[in-house]
Lab assay of single mutants.
Amino acid sequence: MKTQEELTEIVRDHFSDMGEAATLYVQVYESSLESLVGGVIFEDGRHYTFVYENEDLVYE
């Protein structure tokens, strides 16, 4: 099982292909040891929320 830090790095790496991230945040109260819930805000103003669970990243 991966730590939240490892899950955060996986998510950060995925979003790095989409541009320069200004902020990546984790909603600790919705996350667990198995999943990471949060969002990313890019330098150009785009904002996505995400759920990373079971090696699957879903974002909108």
Rank of each mutant, 00 (worst) to 15 (best):
M1K: 13
M1H: 11
K2T: 04
K2H: 06
K2E: 02
K2P: 09
K2F: 06
T3W: 07
T3L: 06
Q4N: 05
E5M: 09
E5K: 09
E5T: 07
E5G: 05
E6H: 06
E6F: 07
E6Y: 07
L7M: 06
L7T: 05
L7R: 02
L7A: 04
L7G: 02
E9G: 07
E9Q: 14
E9A: 13
E9S: 10
I10S: 03
I10D: 02
I10M: 08
I10E: 03
V11P: 03
V11R: 03
R12V: 05
R12D: 01
D13V: 14
D13E: 12
H14A: 10
H14K: 11
H14M: 14
H14Y: 14
H14D: 03
F15N: 01
F15K: 01
F15S: 01
S16R: 14
S16C: 14
S16V: 07
S16E: 05
D17L: 14
D17S: 15
D17G: 14
M18R: 06
M18G: 04
G19Y: 08
G19Q: 04
E20V: 14
E20P: 11
E20A: 12
A21Q: 10
A21E: 08
A22Q: 09
A22W: 13
T23E: 10
T23A: 08
T23L: 14
L24N: 00
L24I: 14
L24D: 03
V26K: 00
V26G: 01
Q27D: 13
Q27T: 15
V28C: 15
V28I: 12
V28H: 12
Y29S: 04
Y29H: 04
Y29V: 03
Y29C: 12
E30D: 14
S31P: 13
S32D: 08
S32C: 12
S32N: 09
S32M: 08
S32V: 09
S32R: 06
L33I: 10
L33M: 09
L33E: 07
L33G: 09
E34Y: 07
E34K: 09
E34P: 10
E34N: 14
E34H: 09
S35V: 14
S35L: 15
S35H: 09
S35W: 11
S35N: 05
S35M: 15
L36M: 06
L36F: 07
L36I: 11
L36A: 03
V37D: 00
V37S: 08
G38F: 13
G38R: 02
G39I: 15
G39R: 11
V40H: 00
V40F: 04
V40L: 05
I41W: 10
F42P: 00
E43C: 13
E43K: 13
E43V: 12
D44V: 10
D44E: 01
G45H: 03
G45D: 01
G45T: 01
R46V: 05
H47C: 13
H47R: 06
H47L: 07
Y48K: 00
Y48M: 04
T49G: 01
T49F: 12
F50R: 00
F50E: 01
V51M: 05
V51A: 04
V51T: 07
V51Q: 02
Y52V: 04
Y52H: 01
Y52N: 00
Y52W: 10
Y52E: 00
E53T: 10
E53Y: 11
N54M: 07
N54V: 08
N54Q: 06
N54G: 08
N54C: 15
N54Y: 08
E55L: 10
E55Q: 11
E55I: 08
D56H: 15
L57F: 08
Y59P: 02
Y59T: 04
Y59E: 03
E60P: 05
E60D: 06
E60H: 11
